[in-house]
Design a protein around this nucleic acid. Structure first.
Length: 198
DNA sequence: CGGCCGATCCACT
DNA sequence: GTGGATCGGCCGA
């Protein structure tokens, strides 16, 4: 098990990284409870040039400021007033690229994840959908800005990080489509920036 | 300061 | 296939 290092997230090609994240393992540990899952669906958001991005046109607000952080930082925000959506900031500091994690296959801590989601069994679609990812892994919008390149935060038993566990992705099982819910983004809505591992 | 709306999910038909 | 839940952030006044 290798924690993905800072250098991994500095890649300037956000679409490449979004695709490369498929098969990696997303791990969280809060209050000593460790949960994880393999990433099977992502979406790339290409900073200032992408109308679907919150940072389009170099837009800076209190919420989007964290997108300008160095690659390897968590960007979590609230959608529809009830869903915390987890994104990974990529590229060097000042370039607001980000990748939305849309789906995982649960691995460790399934009991904890069932408890968090209120489900009684891990069904096929458990962990699919960006809101479900955060719910299962216990990610909250207050976690925005977290450094995800190291395991612990201020000695507390807390953190979000990614691991390379040697899972070999069959390129033929990767589906590339346009992104969900970005019809407002004009021509950028047709960018092939959604990656699904089947 | 107030109104609008979103990178959604689920229960129900 | 559809509508209701539910609220912080953003923008315009």
């Amino acid at each position: 098990m290798t924690i993905l290092p800072r250098s991994y997230y500095l890649n300037p090609d956000v679409a490449f990284l979004a695709k490369d994240l498929l098969g990696k393992c997303l791990v969280t540990q809060f209050d000593g409870k460790l949960t994880s899952g393999m990433i099977v669906e992502t979406e790339a958001y290409a900073g200032v040039t992408d109308k679907a991005s919150h940072a389009y046109g170099n837009r800076r607000t209190v919420r989007t400021e964290v997108m300008y952080s160095i690659g390897g930082t968590a960007y979590v925000y609230l959608c529809y007033g009830m869903h915390s959506l987890f994104n990974i900031v990529t590229n060097r500091e000042g370039i607001p690229d980000a990748i939305l994690i849309r789906g995982i296959v649960p691995d460790e801590g399934t009991g904890i994840m069932l408890q968090r989601t209120g489900k009684d069994s891990v069904t096929k679609n458990f962990g699919i959908g960006p809101g479900n990812v955060s719910k299962a892994l216990g990610i909250h919008y207050s976690h925005t800005g977290l450094d995800i390149t190291r395991k612990t935060l201020k000695k507390k038993d807390t953190g979000i990080w990614l691991e390379e566990r040697g899972f070999v992705v069959d390129p033929g099982k990767i589906q590339i489509t346009t992104r969900i819910g970005v019809q407002y983004a004009g021509e950028d809505a047709s960018r092939p920036y959604r990656f699904v591992l089947h």
